[in-house]
Simulated scan of single mutants.
Amino acid sequence: MSGSLIRLGPRAPVSLTPGGTLQFAGTIRDAALLISTAEVFAWTAPEDSREADILRFLDTRETPGDFLLYGTGASLRFASPAFARQIEKRGLGLETMDTAAACRTYNVLIAERRRFTAALLPIPRG
């Protein structure tokens, strides 16, 4: 993995602060989050390696769930066609949305005890 992962703990609610950073379990994080079906990780990776990192992360999970929830930052940015094909090849669906919508969706999905993986990008400052 090109970026680094730091285990934060089991799944818990996630929110987006007004400044665009992600807040997990009451703590503001200056990193993206990669979330398995059981655990949450702080994730830092260069923009050009994010999709490859997500695929490697999926490949290391015993059960990645039914789909990948992908929060792409301040606005919806569709994944590359090659990335979408790789997600499909792994038998997963791909739900892409801006990070604010992805955080709301994530919280509903964990309340429903759904099995999925999520990649949530913060909104860059500036």
Results as ranks from 00 to 15, higher is better:
48 D>H: 13
73 G>L: 08
79 A>K: 12
88 E>S: 15
22 L>Y: 02
43 W>Y: 05
61 R>T: 09
44 T>W: 10
82 A>C: 12
12 A>K: 12
74 A>I: 10
65 G>L: 02
39 E>V: 00
97 M>Q: 11
50 R>G: 00
99 T>W: 09
94 L>G: 15
94 L>T: 14
70 Y>M: 14
52 A>C: 00
18 P>R: 10
48 D>E: 11
90 R>S: 02
65 G>T: 06
97 M>C: 13
15 S>Y: 05
81 P>E: 09
20 G>Q: 01
20 G>F: 03
24 F>I: 03
12 A>L: 05
66 D>I: 12
89 K>C: 08
87 I>G: 01
12 A>G: 09
42 A>L: 04
92 L>T: 02
60 T>W: 10
51 E>G: 03
14 V>S: 06
27 T>R: 15
55 L>W: 00
72 T>I: 00
80 S>W: 10
62 E>F: 11
89 K>I: 09
92 L>I: 02
36 S>K: 03
72 T>R: 02
52 A>P: 01
35 I>L: 08
98 D>Q: 06
73 G>Q: 13
55 L>H: 05
70 Y>P: 00
80 S>Q: 11
65 G>Y: 02
59 D>K: 12
70 Y>F: 15
48 D>I: 11
76 L>P: 09
12 A>I: 06
42 A>Y: 00
60 T>D: 12
58 L>A: 02
40 V>G: 01
98 D>M: 01
41 F>R: 07
24 F>N: 09
83 F>Y: 14
